[in-house]
């Protein structure tokens, strides 16, 4: 039984860039543990020598010409950002 504790929740929240309140940490630890308990039934499946599947309809290596396709709505895209300057997306300082 894989039990997720508060410390792991904090670590995952950091990886996922998600602020989680103290109250929610506790609840999430319980819910995630229950779901992980459920999926552990996969341990009974015999998959020795079986290859993993990532595309179920068998579409592999979709190739196309390495050509530029122009997108002419650059201004609209920048406008969608919460902050912009000189038609560029503005973000907080990356280095403190």
């Amino acid at each position: 039984m894989s039990i997720i504790d508060i410390k792991q929740i904090e670590h995952l929240a950091e990886l996922a860039r998600l602020k989680v309140s103290d109250e929610e940490k506790d609840k999430m630890a319980g819910e995630l543990s229950a779901i992980l308990g459920f999926v552990e039934k996969l341990d009974q499946a015999d998959v020795v020598g079986v290859l993993p599947t990532s595309n179920a309809a068998g579409i592999f290596n979709a190739m196309r010409q390495d050509a530029v396709d122009q997108y002419n709505k650059q201004k609209e895209l920048v406008k969608a950002a919460p902050a912009s300057k000189d038609n560029l997306v503005k973000v907080k300082a990356v280095f403190e």
């Binding site: 990886l15 929610e24 996969l42 499946a45 993993p52």
Partner: peptide, 29 residues
Amino acid sequence: RRRIMLGTFVLSHGYYDAYYLKAQKVRTK
């Protein structure tokens, strides 16, 4: 939020093989 956390867990270091890779193999079955 719950699914992001769960997904981050099954893809995280040390758990990938036991969860994600295993599930992809059972998917083949």
